[in-house]
Each structure stands twice: as structure tokens, then as C-alpha cells.
Design a binder for these strands. Structure first.
Length: 292
DNA sequence: GTCCAGGTAAGAT
DNA sequence: ATCTTACATGGA
């Protein structure tokens, strides 16, 4: 398969949006729905097993016109650097159920810990899949998490998130939230539905919208976006608001909405892409600083 | 051992 | 309405 440029498997899998992929000597192995996929990129050729080309194309959103998206969000020097530093980074098309639970778990946790939680949840409550002689585990169904005890969930490292995960699973199982209809609904309507779920606030809702419900304008605001806004976009806000963006104190609902709405107006209909580039770029700067 | 993490929700003002 | 604080756990 070779009609997908620009695309970087590395940048797409490493940017922090996905939690189920591992790299081993040049190729990546990941669990997607009920499959194990092994994939690698050589220049402009993708080699993979475990799925067909159309699945890969859909999963990595290779039909998005990334050139167009990049030109839309490239509004300033910072974005230009981010786009240049991580070319070919694409938003993946995640399964909404897995995405929702993953980002409920992501609350107030670092990425290695999130990966460990998801892996453990899958090992305990998912289905075993054999691939190249090794056991892998699919993400648990809504049923299996709804039936789990809070204690069992907690022992996967979920901590206080266990209750929210279990309750959210119940809502999905009963069809109280229906992801297919949320895909068709407007961003605003879909978000208000998601916000009814336990453990889901503005940020988790926006991640679910962006990464799994086709809402590419959704702009999740986490601690990294707060830092980016404070460091590079504060001139778009009043001084008092900027001052409230200090490290340590969490974002109020009001502040969240001000930032997210600013970003959607500023970056446009692909603001979610802008968010992911900024997220990955800003984290990479900090990680570099830590190593030196 | 300390710090902090892709925030949320309950309680206080 | 809006602001403040507790929160379980584990990786860095």
C-alpha cells in the first residue's frame, strides 16, 4: 500500500493518542478491536498483517487530506514548528467504547500508567488472541466491565476511576449512550450526551469526540494545552485570565470553555489536529529538557 | 522517598 | 454560578 502520503506511522503511534501499540525492532504490534495488527513503514510503503488495506486506511484516517489540514491549522510559528517536527502525524479512528474508557482512565495519570491500566484491564477482562505464538488480549466489552467489581477494576491500577468505568460501562451496555447516533449528531449534541456519563468531563468528552466520533474540531484542553496557551497564546486573553492559568490549580469549566472555544475559532474546523500536534510537540520539548 | 500525571465531582463560597 | 479541594495509584 503506497497511496497515503504524507503519513508517519511512528509519529502517529507515538503521539500519545493510542495506548495499545508496542514497538519491537522496526515494526509495531497493536491490538485493534478483535485483531492483532503488525505493521511497519519503509519510506512510502506500509507493510502489515492482521488486517486488510481498507481497514488500515480507515484506522489511520489515510483518506484525510493531511496537506489541506496542515495548511488550515498552520496559523503561526509554533504550529509551523510542530508540523515540521512531526510530519505525517494523523489522528487515528478509534473505537468509541475503548476510547471513552481509555480517556476516563487517563484522568490525572501519565501515559505509561495509562498504557499499563488498559493493558491490565484487557488481560483481566478481555478475550485472548493468539498471534505469532504469543497471547494478546482484546479490549473488554461493555458487558464484561459492567459486571466486574469495583475492586477488581481497581486492582488493574484504576484507583478512584474504577467506579466511573463500571458505571459508564453500564450506560453503554443498556444503550443509554449509542455511539453510532453520536457520530451522526452535531458536536455539541454529542458532547452533552457524553457529559452525562460518570467520570466524563469536558476533557474526556472532547477526546472521545475527536479520537472516535469524527469530530475533528473538538479541542481537548489538558495540562499541556494549558501550558501551551499560557506560554504562546496568552495575548488572546486578558491578563487576569492568564494569571489564573498557573501551574497546580485545575481548570474551571469556564476557563476550559474559553480556551477550547478560542482554539476552535483560531485553528478552524481541524482544531483537533492542531491540538494533537501541539500536545506531542510540547511534550517532546519537555522530555528533551529532562534528558539533558 | 517525593513529585506529578491527557481531570472530575463534590463541597464551599 | 463559580471557585477550591480530595482523590487512588504508579511511573519517573
Amino acid at each position: 500500500m503506497d497511496d497515503f502520503t504524507p503519513f508517519s506511522l511512528e509519529n502517529t503511534l507515538q503521539c500519545g493518542q493510542l495506548f495499545r501499540w508496542k514497538k519491537n525492532d522496526g515494526s509495531w504490534t497493536g491490538i485493534v478491536a478483535e485483531r492483532v495488527i503488525k505493521i511497519r513503514q519503509k519510506a512510502n510503503v506500509l507493510e502489515f498483517e492482521g488486517a486488510n488495506a481498507s481497514f488500515i486506511k480507515g484506522y489511520f484516517r489515510l483518506d484525510d487530506d493531511l496537506q489541506l489540514i496542515a495548511s488550515c491549522i498552520n496559523r503561526d510559528h509554533l504550529m509551523e514548528r510542530a508540523l515540521h517536527r512531526f510530519p505525517g502525524l494523523r489522528i487515528a479512528r478509534q473505537d468509541p467504547w475503548e476510547c471513552l474508557i481509555s480517556y476516563i482512565c487517563a484522568t490525572y495519570k501519565n501515559i505509561p500508567a495509562i498504557k499499563s491500566m488498559i493493558s491490565e484491564l484487557s488481560r483481566r477482562f478481555g478475550q485472548k488472541i493468539l498471534f505469532e505464538g504469543k497471547s494478546h488480549f482484546s479490549f473488554p466489552t461493555p458487558d464484561s466491565l459492567a459486571n466486574a467489581t469495583v475492586n477488581d477494576l481497581s486492582s488493574c491500577g484504576l484507583g478512584f476511576r474504577a467506579r466511573a468505568v463500571r458505571e459508564a460501562a453500564k450506560h453503554v451496555r443498556t444503550g443509554k449512550v449509542d455511539f453510532d447516533s453520536l457520530k451522526k449528531a452535531s458536536c455539541k449534541t454529542a458532547k452533552s450526551e457524553l457529559l452525562c456519563l460518570p467520570g466524563v468531563g469536558n476533557k474526556v468528552a472532547d477526546c472521545t469526540l475527536l479520537f472516535s466520533l469524527e469530530k475533528l474540531s473538538a479541542f481537548p484542553v489538558d495540562i499541556w494545552m494549558k501550558r501551551v496557551i499560557k506560554d504562546h497564546y496568552s495575548q488572546n486573553f486578558d491578563a487576569l485570565f492568564d494569571k489564573s492559568l498557573t501551574e497546580g490549580n485545575s481548570l474551571s469549566t469556564k476557563a476550559y470553555e474559553r480556551i477550547s472555544e478560542f482554539a476552535q475559532g483560531y485553528f478552524g474546523k481541524f482544531a483537533g489536529y492542531a491540538q494533537q500536534y501541539l500536545f506531542h510537540y510540547y511534550r517532546s520539548l519537555r522530555n528533551k529538557a529532562c534528558k539533558s
